[in-house]
Structure formats: structure tokens, C-alpha cells
Computed example of a mutant assay.
Amino acid sequence: MTTERPGKTARDVMHQGAECVGEHDSLRTAAEMMRDLSVGALPICGDDDRLKGIITDRDIVIKCCAEGKDLNETTAGELARGLVWVDAQTSVEDALVTMEEHQIKRMPVIENHRIVGMISEADLAKELPDSKLAEFVHRIYAGA
């Protein structure tokens, strides 16, 4: 069992250096990036290098493939959703609450108006006591 260490922030537990897919990039490009990076979600950044949303592998399957849309023609920006993020200095506890409230499993971490990483349920799992982890998983998957 892991114990929560006081004072830990989103920066302390995130995966650093999140790569963005461009809002004008195709879903094929997004899917290839996910494959190459071994991730299930990517932040979507605009031409201004600012966060526009997030796209998941599930979004690509459900909102593009299953709808008969073209992976080469549909852009990541068209599926941009969930502009939910935390500041790098946000406490692990507050990051957890934000993810629970929005029932999301991955969340961008922002510092000085730029994305610096991603935080996932797996990152939080390493920091939470078993009882808190069980509550988190229940809340996240209750609406899935």
C-alpha cells in the first residue's frame, strides 16, 4: 500500500513533456502519434501553441470510425473536447477531485499557459492509499 505524501503537486506525479497533436492534424496523424507514443490520449494544441482540448483513442473509434468519417479528412480539432486541466502547482488531492468531478482518466497539466505534462489515473494510483484509490476508480467508472 502506498501512502499519500503531503505537499505533492500535479507536477510531481505527471508524465512530463506531453506531445500535442495539432488542431488541424488528421485523426490518422493523431492515431499514429498515439501508437508511436504508446498513449491513449493526446492534448490538442492550436496554432498559438495553446491547449484546445484532448482526444482519446476511444473518441477516434466512436466519433470517426463508427460514424463512417474519413480518418484522413477529419481533424483532431473537430473532436476537441474536455478542456479540463490543472495547474502544475495543484495538489494531488485537488487534481483527484477535478478528475472525479469530470469523470476523466487523463488530464493536461499547465504551467505559464503551456502544457508541461499529463496526469493519469495510473499516476494518481501510485500516490493514493488503497481506500482513496478505490473511491476514485468507483467515481470515474460510475458514469462510464
Rank of each mutant, 00 (worst) to 15 (best):
D59I: 06
W85M: 08
R114Q: 11
S120L: 07
T56Q: 13
K105R: 15
V116T: 09
V92E: 09
C20L: 02
C64K: 13
I60V: 08
R11Q: 09
I62M: 14
V86H: 01
F136C: 09
C64H: 14
I55A: 04
R11L: 12
D25G: 03
D25W: 03
D57V: 04
A95G: 13
D94C: 15
E73N: 03
I104N: 04
P6H: 14
D49R: 10
D48F: 07
L51I: 14
S38C: 11
I110R: 07
S26G: 05
S38I: 07
A144M: 08
D36S: 04
L42P: 00
D36K: 11
D70S: 12
I119T: 08
Q103S: 10
L71K: 01
C64N: 05
G53V: 12
A66T: 01
D48M: 15
E73A: 10
R5D: 13
E4C: 04
N72S: 12
I115R: 10
E127F: 14
V86F: 02
Y141L: 15
I104Q: 15
I115G: 02
D123F: 02
T29G: 06
G82W: 12
T98E: 09
S120F: 05
V84K: 05
P129L: 14
A95N: 08
D57N: 03
A125C: 06
E23S: 15
R35D: 04
K105P: 11
T56Y: 01
L71M: 07
A18R: 07
R114V: 03
I55G: 04
T74E: 09
D70Q: 14
G17P: 11
A41I: 07
V109E: 12
T9N: 14
C45L: 00
N112Q: 09
M14C: 01
E32N: 10
D36C: 05
H24Q: 10
E19N: 10
M107S: 08
M34E: 02
V21K: 00
L124I: 15
D36P: 04
V13Q: 12
D87A: 06
I119E: 04
V61I: 06
M1V: 09
H24R: 12
L79D: 09
I110N: 08
A125K: 05
L96I: 10
E4D: 10
D94S: 11
K52R: 10
S120G: 02
P108N: 06
V92Q: 14
A76D: 00
R50W: 15
E101M: 11
V97Q: 07
E121Y: 12
Q89H: 11
S131F: 11
S120H: 08
L51K: 08
V61R: 08
I104M: 11
S38F: 10
E101G: 07
A31C: 13
A142K: 13
C64W: 05
S131W: 15
D48A: 03
G68P: 04
T90R: 03
G53L: 09
G143T: 09
R11N: 07
V21L: 00
R28W: 06
K105T: 03
N72F: 03
L42G: 01
E73P: 01
T98V: 11
W85P: 04
E32D: 13
L42R: 02
V97G: 08
V21C: 00
K8R: 13
Y141C: 10
E101N: 14
G40H: 02
L79E: 04
L133S: 02
T90W: 01
Q16F: 14
L96D: 13
M14L: 15
